[in-house]
Nucleic acid binder design. Structure first.
Lengths: 133, 133
DNA sequence: CTGGATGCAAAATATTTGCAGGGGC
DNA sequence: GCCCCTGCAAATATTTTGCATCCAG
């Protein structure tokens, strides 16, 4: 079972209702941008401030507990950190899906060209999802 | 030989000294963010406006003649459009390099999982460049 | 000559910060 | 009770827009 309070504690963040709601929203929706988070939290906390969203999201990103995903031609979205994975972005409906593929096969191609030491690999595929086809 | 005026004409953009300079800077430096472009152009055009940079970069991106590259934990950079390629970002010195690797080998992995139709693939590797190692 | 480009200023957006009060632990 | 968190307001940063003038074609 997913428990956002425990998660927050593990990362040394005080458990507040606003933080729990942020984590729960992200758990439920997978990926959200700042404004989607704000709009959704407004329903539960009519007086929540955008500054609170920013402060918390930034704090969680710093604790490496949220991950920012930069989307081509669109706003960044945030997700809970899980195993490394890639993203599929549908150009038609905008939906973002996670996909687990092995990107390390690319590393050998890099080594054959450059002496660069790869630490992280971010892959975003844009195209058309099955629903929209 | 590289000729920025011809390039601009091909994309139906009037050839102005500011535009030529933007294209020349990007050709020379490979990747630049908005502020680097502005600072460099100020040397040639002390009264150039940031608005001019934005208007032109946006126009060139729309004509698909510049490409915006979103860099993890950093600002977007722009580059002249060339064959599809990936990017290496050095976490130490910040340098960004192009690298030509075949990313289509990933597509078969996607097909085996999802029915998503891939149209574009953006890959950014972060790590340590050979100089910084 | 004409329409689009430039530079400036202002507006619109996006993000961060300071601070007083409130609440988690 | 202490200190961090919240919400508000203000400050900053980023990007866009309107407009008068200028210049490429």
């Amino acid at each position: 079972m997913f428990n956002s309070s425990i998660l927050l504690k593990e990362y040394n963040l005080k458990v507040t209702p606003q933080r729990v709601a942020i984590v729960d929203e992200l758990y439920k929706n997978g990926h959200m941008n700042i404004d989607e988070l704000y709009q959704n939290l407004l329903k539960k906390f009519p007086s929540i401030s955008l500054a609170t969203i920013y402060k918390n999201v930034n704090a969680m990103v710093e604790k490496i507990f949220l991950n920012e995903v930069k989307i081509p031609e669109s706003k960044s979205v945030y997700e809970l950190v899980k195993e490394e994975h890639s993203h599929l972005v549908c150009k038609s409906c905008g939906k973002i899906e996670d996909i687990n593929i092995d990107t390390s096969i690319l590393n050998s191609s890099i080594l054959s060209i450059s002496n660069f030491k790869v630490e992280d690999t971010k892959v975003v595929f844009s195209g058309v999802c099955s629903n929209c086809q």
